[in-house]
Amino acid sequence: MTSTPSSRDTVLASVRRALGVTSREAPRRQEVEARLASHPAGVIPARAQLPPAERLELFKAMALGAASSLDHLASAAEVPGAIAAYLSTRDLPLKLLRGADPRLAALPWSSAPQIDVWIGPSDGRQPVGLSHAFAGIAESGTLVLFSGADNPTTLNFLPDHHLVVLEAKDVVADYETAWARVRAQFPDGQLPRAINMITGPSRSADIEQTLLLGAHGPRSLHVLLVGAPS
């Protein structure tokens, strides 16, 4: 079912009548085009406007403050070992599901042969999912993830434990810098189907306003932060 042309026209005509415009005014159109083309940043808090090392420390503090856990690793080579340690200290099966992301495929999995690594989207039966983040945002300790075969969206939400590899060079100060990077990555303006910004594990305060972790999404969000800021 598509919208009948009349409803669309009725709503737009009603908006124009209320505004006292016709839609043909050139200055209005120019103002809209200019705003879309320039996409001004607005007010950006000073909080995260820091040199790279301090910015990274802010990201870590904010992520921990949002109840994420975090390992800061010197290099990507340490990721499989850190994952094995995460799984065994929590008595989890040594098994995880990830997408086709070449950066995850390139990890030295042979260094942790005890982990059984599967590739694909989740159907809800896997306790642990692994993703690679596009960026981290220091201002609020937020991860930015794209949908697609590299990092299927279901991995972000169905497993009890969501592990996310984030490269320190991809930790930016604010959302605006992250969007600038997104725009650069998709110059035709066609964004991934879903862009997920994730700040900590799932939670709810709907029972007597008491905050509890582990509502419908992952009960734990673990960040594997790799390397030093560029």
Partner: peptide, 20 residues
């Protein structure tokens, strides 16, 4: 500071998407 999940949904599943 920020809700846990902020999602920008931009259309249906793409040709190569395994979910959505």
């Amino acid at each position: 500071d920020m809700s846990v999940y902020t999602t920008f949904a931009c259309g249906p599943r793409r040709a190569l998407d395994p979910d959505g």
